[in-house]
Amino acid sequence: MTEELKSKHNKNILLVENIYTYFKTESGVVKALDGVSFDIRENESVGIVGESGCGKTVTSRSILRILPKNGETVAGQIFYKGVDLLKLPEHLMRVVRGKEIALLFQDPLSALNPVLSIREQMVDVIKLHRKVNESEAAELAINMMRQVGIPEPEQRIDDYPHQYSGGMRQRILIARALALQPDLLIADEPTTALDVTIQAQVLKIIKDMREKLGLSLMLITHNLGVVSENTDRIHIFYGGRVVESGPTREIFKDPHHPYTIALLESIPAFDRKEKQLKTIPGSVPQLINPPPGCRFHPRCEFATEICKTRPTLEKFSEDRFVACFHVEEVLKSRKSKS
């Protein structure tokens, strides 16, 4: 381990270093993650933001090594509390999954088994990781269900997933994930399948539990409103790469990468003068045959010949990282416009 990495480990609970995750398909190799690097610090809430298909979910699955059979992380390192998870034997990964890093899935209905009661699904997980008997595990499960706001948990624990509403199912998943008191919670679009009022409730529960348990959060979402309210830092993904990283407030206030700027301009805002929302021209890159160099360059108004070579994620200012050759010009242009 290099000195630079060692110093990083002192602050980070998770450090993803230059990972490449590929999928073999009939049409060719899909380069879902192409040199992704980012970190999550202790007790910090980090947002992973990007359009559909940019590699957000693949990142979470690469971290926990639960990729589909045709997928593989071919290069890179994923350090969790200083241990490279990609080299960890499978039997030790079982200790990490659930107990150290919990994953909250996007669709709560498909994440729960329809033929098992909530009791069985929660007790199984608790018993596997803790030296507790059936009744102690059930007691713990009921306690967690109460904390996430399930009414009458003593009765409802024997219900099946179809007897719960969408928001309740997501609460069950949160209760199950947090029953083992993990140190890192990966929430993969936890509110996408829910309606707006329930979204707010679920996010509040995650926030409260995070504060109570002091855990780190990796919040994967395409909803910029959700990250703005619930994260300390964000990593912007585009085409399987990180294009910009930094504190949430700063990025929302002063985005540096053309993609981040375009993304933020596509959100409706009361204080904006333009009547029409801006859209990003073109479409998301095909990851089987992506454009050379910067993957955003075919859609970028600042693109030049140099953009056909790959930009690295460079430190721009304190805690701000941008992968763009034209940051200065972008900022100048923004200044002149404003």
Binding site: K99, R130, Q147, L180, Q181
Partner: peptide
């Protein structure tokens, strides 16, 4: 320990 003791009080 198989984490028999909870790390934090919930």
């Amino acid at each position: 320990d198989n984490k028999s003791v909870p790390k934090k009080e919930v």
